[in-house]
């Protein structure tokens, strides 16, 4: 009777040992890299790597007049239509607002612009529908054009000149309409300009 019990135990132990071996083999094979890396055979191959790094670089700079801000001066009589920013026209009828693409760039640039609300600290607002702009890669009396102006937007960037090449400038003009009902005050906002590699989109 005792002998039968021992035999049962032996069978049980052997079964456990088999399970143990199977599990250990399973664990090892599970931990090894996929079989693709373990294939062996008579054919041998040699590999080598090939590498190339493409680096892009792009730099832009605003003119000192644009860095200093776009000012519309003091307006004493309302309404005004297409009030010029103070540096829209210099004595040569050129604008003094510009952004240059550095010659130390290796990609063409698309220009984008958007603005925050034009408001007073007291909360009065001149809607951006009244604030217009134009840009051009040419700078003279008629370019950037006075007509065909685009309005600014607070939420999305508007696309300006595209494909401006290194070493060249993009020129800007700005205008403001103010209705007769506009409360007096000092109105401020921020214009955001960004350059993106050509074709990458403004938003």
């Amino acid at each position: 009777m005792r002998k039968g019990g021992k035999k049962k135990e032996d069978v049980f132990l052997v079964a456990l040992e088999i399970i143990l071996v199977v599990c250990v083999i399973g664990l090892i094979s599970d931990s090894l890299p996929s079989s693709g890396n373990l294939l062996t055979g008579q054919a041998t191959t040699q590999t080598t790597t090939s590498q190339v790094t493409i680096q892009n670089y792009l730099s832009i700079s605003s003119s000192s007049n644009l860095s200093a801000g776009v000012d519309f001066g003091t307006i004493n009589s309302l309404p005004v239509t297409n009030q010029n920013a103070t540096n829209n026209y210099n004595s040569s009828n050129n604008t003094e607002y510009s952004i240059a693409v550095s010659t130390d760039s290796n990609t063409n640039v698309d220009f984008c612009i958007h603005a925050s609300e034009l408001n007073t600290t007291g909360g009065d607002v001149i809607g951006l529908g009244n604030y217009s702009w134009e840009d051009d890669s040419v700078n003279n009396l008629t370019a950037p054009a006075t007509y065909g102006q685009a309005n600014l937007n607070t939420s999305t960037y508007a696309v300006g000149s595209t494909g401006v090449t290194p070493g060249n400038d993009n020129y800007y003009r700005f205008w403001l309409n103010i209705t007769v009902a506009q409360p007096p005050g000092t109105y401020n906002n921020t214009l955001f300009f960004k350059g993106v590699p050509t074709g990458d989109g403004c938003n």
Partner: peptide, 18 residues
């Protein structure tokens, strides 16, 4: 840009995006 004094109009900010 640090603009001081009684400025009325738009400050400007410049950036490059990739």
């Amino acid at each position: 840009n640090k603009i001081t004094g009684g400025f009325a109009g738009s400050k400007t900010a410049l950036g490059v995006t990739v």
